[in-house]
């Protein structure tokens, strides 16, 4: 099996296991579909079980091959989740910016990951469906990325949006961001529909995966084993809050090849 110590490969390529968690219908599968196929389906059918997809992400110095577990988020299979996040080097915990309860659920997932997953797991908190509240006065804050073609969200609205039924947005970017900062999570608001910030999330994660924890491409049968459990023990130093802006700093140029 290839290893990160592989000599003189021009651009070392490594596999990164990533799991998506979050309430049903927040847009997990849509984010993956956008990332992997650059596509969006307005009436996506709910995921059955869990889906496994792969997608490469080119960084300046290396290639990351994401092995993505998109879970269905149904309650009855909550007990299966450990199987998906075990050994995962990264997680996307997704909520829907138009649904307050979905952030509550997301926080539960973050807590579970911090308790049960590999210690060095890179977690990104993602507020999806941003396109639905583009007209709202309150836009994103620094959690917003470079805003490829997204104008409305650029205003640095400080007002609290939650609880205000007149607005589509139910979770303010500020609140979510400050929670993410407290928990040392990457934070993004995205739209799988427009594609806004989607690649940036994955690129930021790829950049934040410590080089040392990377290993060669997954080798079939052995890959499911527990060997990766130790990967990122002691990587806590890397849990500096690399905020979204920094993560996406290099912009789309060094983004994923998709």
């Amino acid at each position: 099996m290839a290893d990160s110590s592989q000599p003189s490969a021009p651009k070392p390529s490594s596999s990164v296991k990533l799991v998506l968690l979050g309430e049903a219908a927040v847009g997990k599968s849509s984010l993956v579909l956008r990332f992997v196929n650059n596509d969006f389906q307005p009436n996506k059918e709910p995921t059955i079980g869990a889906a496994f997809l792969t997608q490469k992400c080119q960084l300046p110095t290396r290639t990351i091959k994401f092995e993505i577990w998109d879970t269905a988020g149904q309650e009855r299979f909550a007990s299966l989740a450990p199987m998906y996040y075990r050994n995962a080097q990264s997680a996307l915990v997704v909520y829907d910016v138009t649904k307050a309860s979905s952030l509550v659920k997301a926080k539960h997932w973050v807590a579970e990951l911090q308790r049960q997953a590999s210690p060095g797991i890179v977690i990104a908190l993602v507020g999806n469906k941003l396109d639905l509240c583009e007209d709202d006065a309150e836009g994103g804050d620094e959690g917003e990325g470079e805003g490829q073609g997204e104008e409305a969200g650029e205003e640095a609205g400080e007002g609290k949006g939650e609880g205000d039924d007149g607005k589509v947005r139910k979770v303010s970017a500020k609140d979510a961001k400050s929670y993410a900062d407290d928990e040392h999570l990457l934070f993004f608001e995205t739209s799988a529909k427009t594609g806004h910030n989607v690649n940036d999330v994955f690129t930021a994660i790829a950049n934040k995966i410590p080089e040392a924890s990377l290993k060669g491409p997954r080798g079939g049968a052995t890959a499911g084993g527990g060997t990766q459990a130790a990967i990122s023990a002691g990587q806590d130093s890397s849990r500096v809050n690399l905020n979204a802006r920094q993560g996406a700093e290099g912009g789309p140029k060094e983004g994923c090849a998709c």
Binding site: V36, N37, K44, A51, I68, D70
Partner: peptide, 16 residues
């Protein structure tokens, strides 16, 4: 009949 597996474009792991 259910589109999600076919349309998903990946592999699926389904408890049933």
């Amino acid at each position: 009949e259910a589109g999600s597996i076919k349309a998903g474009g990946g592999e699926n792991w389904i408890p049933l």
